[in-house]
Amino acid sequence: MTPILKLVDAVSRALFRLAEAVTLILVAAMIYEVVARYVFAAPTLWAFDISYMCTGVLFVLGAAYALREDAHVRIDFLAERMPRRLRLGIEAVIFLFCLAPIFASLAYVAIGRALRAYQSGEVEMVSPWAPLMWPFYSFIALGLVALALQILAHGLRAALGRTEAEFEIEA
């Protein structure tokens, strides 16, 4: 089991690194737009699309590893008072049997959307730049797949009773 969990972690970490790079792209694009518009009176056609796409991509790609770091905020003052096994049991059941199928189905739809956008050559609806949409859809799909896997891994860890240390990273 452990090698599989480690593989999932590694995938999440790689996407998280990618999200860090996307953050830099976002900043650079916005600065470029301000300078282009204000100094050169020649705003770009793409800065607006890039801003929302980068934001969407960076959070979706970062979500899985954020779960690995247990950075998704929870209110645990009641949970902390529960017996350890009960708490892990709830965590395992909810992650394995509720959240994993939910996010897997979201990932499934996301992959379908990316494929459809690729095949139909879908472009942005209102942007004067009108970029192709499939790369953006693909990143969302990628992030959701990783998140679904990480949710599964998190549930398995809870079921195996290994999650305790992570819970305490952030109290």
């Binding site: 860090e20 953050t23 959070f59 790609l61 970062g62 979500a63 998704h72």
Partner: peptide, 10 residues
Amino acid sequence: TVRISAMILL
């Protein structure tokens, strides 16, 4: 940045 943004935006 990515960790906190992912948390808030999720």
